[in-house]
Amino acid sequence: MMSRASAFAAGVVFAVGLGISGMTQPAKVIGFLDFFGRWDPSLVFVMGGAVVFYFAAFRWVRGYGTPLLADRFRLPDRTDIDARLVAGAAIFGVGWALAGYCPGPAITSLGALSGDALIFAAAMLAGMLVFRTVNRR
């Protein structure tokens, strides 16, 4: 029960962070990717603020043997670089630039009843299901 409450609260704070930082404005995100036009550096500061905080927190939290509300830490353990990683990231980047939405801001914008975000998120779920189906073969 507590772990569900903490996940909910973290989701709320995450969404508010996205909204305040400007990441729920697709035009702003596309502006960041527009290095050869009118570049908007905002995303550098969003990622910078988040990464610096997370970097410090990660080092501190790892000092604990287990998380507060779960039996163990579940962290990615892969270190190999493979074609799927690079191809997947490249495909994601194309979609990100076409609409200015990545998964977090899109789902956050559902709460604001954004029609664009609804269409995008439905297609995103379809894309994830396509991956699951193909990946199983």
């Binding site: 903490s6 996940a7 990464v51 998380p67 509300l69």
Partner: peptide, 29 residues
Amino acid sequence: TVLLPLAGGALIGVAAAAMLFLNGRIAGI
């Protein structure tokens, strides 16, 4: 372009760190 993105980014970092500290999970949407 600087202050609100930094503040929002810090909140995102707080939320992601909370998911790690409390739930032991990576906050990857």
